[in-house]
Nucleic acid binder design. Structure first.
Lengths: 225, 225
DNA sequence: GTATGCTCAAAACGTACGTTTGATTTTTTA
DNA sequence: TAAAAAATCAAACGTACGTTTTGAGCATAC
């Protein structure tokens, strides 16, 4: 369950925030926006799914877009924190990368709805929403510039803009979850814990060593380093 | 300009297919759906942007969703062909990967609107549309299984499901273009030909060698192979 | 020359949209 | 416990939606 301590002081006091209409609307928004799409989801549908009165949406969030902004805000905040907590530090590169991939994958697995909304469902033609997304993106770019770009430079030995590497990495990590509903529907693979453990190791390996032959142990690069 | 020879025989005969209302509607759909979103775009808005009469949309495509399906169909077909034409073959891995990244990047650069629609704007709650996407995804999965997975196995030495690698690769290549409008708005980097040449080399390198130290030349892995 | 296909403007179809209102109930405060 | 504040409700606001129909004008094909 997701908490939003920064939203309203009163929510901190409450011990059943999950049952609060405000939270119910948010969860309904995540569920419906990520499936039907933001524009295709009606406020009546949203209210019914949340089990609250129609007027409560505008009462708590001001507008339908207010719900969207709350979702996007939560996602980017939590995503940034997840990346930051796992990419910083001084341990060996292999450990840090695998921890990062594991943490981000687990977060996206638990919050793929929010991710889809944040990445794909934002109506960028609304200036207010666009600026909202740009603001969060600047944060992520700063994060990439401080922690990821140095790694790239060590590898390629050339300065690379943070605008390049952030989306590439993000897309790499998010790609699976954007297609997850379709992958599940095809049904030729079971998306269980075993799958994701293998997935995390695959992505970590690709991130560290790429497709190039890395030797039988899969770690020949660092072994000879 | 994009041609759709598979749509209708009559289009092949025409020498000004771009001016044809059918094509104008499709281009308008790509432009508007990718910016406002599919559900948020009205058919009157679509007709006006295309410069055709409102009734022409249903006349040619049956419904608003028909326009969407035509766009998605075109994208997946062209995307698959682009990947296939550049990943197959017997040349050195480095060359094939860089050619693949270059071709896909160029295609996505020219068709980022269609990509965004195909990846993000599909109303998956409509069974008909869902099945449409699943069908195309199966194709892509088969393609990945035949041409990409063998490369992975060479590197990691372990069988990996095609469902894993496809979306990871796709996300890696598409990530930048999903965020492109925001990147452009931030405006700290110019997305010109120079940028994309550097971008292609970065992604190719990451795909081949990852973030691991690849030596001063950036090719130490294959050099010692 | 008449049939067929294409394009148009305009109108109407019923439905659904996001938001607001004002009254009513519940909770908090003093 | 009485007054104030917050929360919840049903109903209505005007607008926009996707689609279909009408009837006319125009070109091309048989």
């Amino acid at each position: 369950m997701i908490f939003y301590l920064e939203l309203k002081d009163e929510m901190i006091k409450m011990n059943h925030a999950v049952d609060h209409p405000r939270e119910r609307i948010l969860q309904a928004g995540i569920h419906l926006f990520s499936r039907r799409g933001f524009a295709a989801t009606g406020v009546r549908e949203l209210a019914e799914y949340a089990g609250v009165n129609l007027a409560m949406i505008n009462y708590y969030y001001g507008s339908k877009i207010g719900v969207l902004k709350a979702i996007v805000d939560t996602f980017f905040t939590e995503y940034s924190r997840t990346v930051l907590e796992n990419v910083a530090g001084e341990g060996p590169l292999e450990t840090r990368i695998e921890n990062l991939v594991r943490a981000v994958t687990r977060y996206l697995l638990a919050n793929s709805g929010m991710m889809k909304i944040a990445v794909a469902e934002m109506p960028l033609d609304i200036p207010e929403v666009f600026e909202y997304k740009a603001q969060h993106f600047r944060q992520l770019k700063k994060l990439a510039g401080e922690h990821i770009v140095p790694l790239i430079e060590k590898s390629i030995g050339k300065k690379q803009p943070a605008e390049m590497i952030g989306p590439v990495l993000g897309g790499m990590l998010m790609g699976h979850f954007l297609f997850r509903p379709v992958i599940m529907a095809i049904g030729e693979v079971t998306l269980d814990a075993v799958f994701y453990e293998q997935y995390i190791r695959l992505v970590s390996h690709m991130l560290l060593y790429g497709l190039g032959k890395a030797g039988p142990g899969g770690r020949s690069i660092t072994a000879g380093d």
